[in-house]
Design a protein around this nucleic acid. Structure first.
Length: 304
DNA sequence: AACGCAGCCAACCGCCAAAGA
DNA sequence: TTCTTTGGCGGTTGGCTGCGT
């Protein structure tokens, strides 16, 4: 550990004296190296702790107290613009507020409202129109986990259909196969931060992923389905288990299927061949039309 | 007055990327 | 080019406080 595991460093709440020492040192010498700041100022804190204390509490323009209406609006506008929260970027747009402040604000709001079955977003916030622009969709494709969210929000009939069928499935099923969040299941409708794979071709809802799977989202890769549809389930399962490289949701950290399954204690629900009847989906797709608005999805549409 | 609970917020942890040696 | 250190970030935890019972 670079800076946080030393047995000599103090942890916990900062005292007034420590604050004054840190403030005086930073104002006189700056913050080029936080470990040096800690050492030279005579603090028994790690550099990271000093940095956090300075940026969140001690620097001159730091703002405390509840968020103003204007600040709240900026948070939501940011989400509208980028389709996700980046606390540090948001902090740049809210002078005086640290990323930690904004994160706390949002998490508290989210927890409170979702507990009541409400969306954490304001009632008058129309995400769909904004996200409908080609630029927004293009931006969102940098993160696989937001593409389905943007598209599926447009099709409440499909949401309801899918959700109705999955409501009884434990949360982990969503988290690992569908990729949604548990709070959505509690709410009983799929809106907000949910993520559901692209429209699954019948009869098997959850297809084997492509050989070079990077995300669970690739489960619905239409090419893979086209190339492997001749395999029976047992053969496809063997291919899937032996050749798939599992990684975490960010696509970086390798994980074994066994680890993942064991961690979640839900072997059955981790089964990518789990079949759920989406027999009505085709009608929904025809009715929705715009669901298939890029090349991959057009292929999928053809498949169906 | 005592207790439990929820909300808030400060702080920590672990991961990662950039910078430096 | 490789290894180490540092800073930055997001997720999470734990303590404090206020409120209701």
């Amino acid at each position: 550990m670079s800076s946080s595991s030393s047995v000599d460093t103090k942890k916990g709440t900062w005292s007034k004296e420590e604050d004054e020492i840190l403030k005086a040192y930073v104002e006189n010498h700056g913050t080029r190296n936080w470990n040096e700041v800690s050492k030279n100022a005579g603090l028994i804190r790690c550099g990271k702790s000093c940095r956090l204390r300075w940026y969140n509490h001690l620097q001159p323009d730091v703002k405390k107290g509840p968020f103003s209406e204007e600040e709240e609006t900026k948070v939501f506008v940011f989400y509208k613009k980028y389709g996700e929260f980046k606390w540090s970027k948001l902090a740049e747009e809210l002078p005086g507020r640290s990323d930690n402040d904004i994160k706390n604000f949002w998490n508290a709001r989210k927890r409170k409202l979702e507990r009541r079955g409400l969306s954490p977003f304001p009632d008058n916030m129309e995400l769909d129109d904004e996200l409908n622009s080609s630029q927004q969709i293009e931006d969102s494709q940098e993160d696989e986990f937001h593409i389905p969210q943007l598209k599926f929000r447009k099709y409440p009939s499909i949401f309801d259909e899918i959700n109705e069928k999955l409501l009884d499935v434990p949360n982990m099923f969503y988290n690992n196969i569908v990729g949604s969040t548990s709070t959505l299941i509690d709410r009983g409708s799929i809106i907000g931060t949910s993520y559901i794979p692209m429209a699954p071709p019948p009869p098997c809802s959850y297809l084997p992923p492509p050989m070079e799977t990077q995300y669970h989202g690739d489960f619905m890769d239409p090419d893979f389905w086209l190339h492997n549809s001749s395999l029976d389930n047992d053969d496809a399962r063997r291919v899937y288990l032996s050749e798939t490289n599992f990684v975490d949701e960010k696509g970086k950290k390798p994980i074994s299927l066994e680890d993942d399954v064991e961690a979640n204690l839900l072997d059955d629900f981790m089964d990518p061949f789990l079949c759920i009847d989406f027999s009505n989906l085709e009608d929904d797709v025809e009715a929705g039309g715009r669901l298939f608005d890029n090349d991959d999805n057009r292929n999928l549409h053809d498949t169906i």
